[in-house]
């Protein structure tokens, strides 16, 4: 179980290969990659700020929760900060479980927590202005849904 916060790019293929090689009893590995999206076509880059002293511990807590809740064999989170260009990978999640439903659900759960509870803030930098990305009500609703749902 690992959670990494880093400024540099990560090698998705190498991370998944290494993650898969480390598991023993799982029949399913699910991965998710978040990419910098530029809906307007005019964004120069994204800047991701984070709360250094809190970030890695909070990611580790979400990984531990996901492992316990979905009986995952293992889970991995990598999240970047700093300057990222459109098309670059911001973060990735990998989960391993005996069956695919738990692996998918574990990855989904981790993503919902990362969206709203990990101390990162995204700013979009355009040619003439900058804008902090606002949190969305549906992200909070997605989180709330996990506490209502019976265990998968």
């Amino acid at each position: 179980m690992a959670a990494h916060v880093q400024e540099t790019a990560f090698d998705f293929s190498a991370e998944v290969t290494s993650f898969q090689a480390s598991i023993k009893d799982s029949g399913a590995v699910v991965t998710f990659t978040g990419i910098v999206r530029d809906d307007s076509g005019t964004m120069d880059h994204m800047f991701i700020e984070h709360y250094h002293a809190m970030t890695e511990a909070s990611l580790q807590k979400f990984v531990d929760q996901a492992i316990a809740k979905f009986e995952l064999e293992d889970a991995l989170v990598i999240h970047r900060h700093g300057v990222l260009k459109p098309g670059e990978a911001i973060m990735m999640v990998a989960t391993a479980a005996r069956h695919r439903k738990d692996a998918f659900a574990g990855a989904d759960y981790l993503m919902d927590y990362l969206k709203s509870r990990a101390p990162f803030w995204k700013k979009e930098i355009f040619k003439d202005y900058t804008e902090w990305v606002e949190s969305r009500a549906q992200d909070e609703e997605a989180l709330a849904a996990w506490s209502q749902e019976p265990k998968v």
Partner: peptide, 12 residues
């Protein structure tokens, strides 16, 4: 204490 103030988080 360390007290931090910030807007709702936007990770992921």
């Amino acid at each position: 204490c360390e007290v931090a103030f910030f807007p709702p988080m936007t990770g992921g």
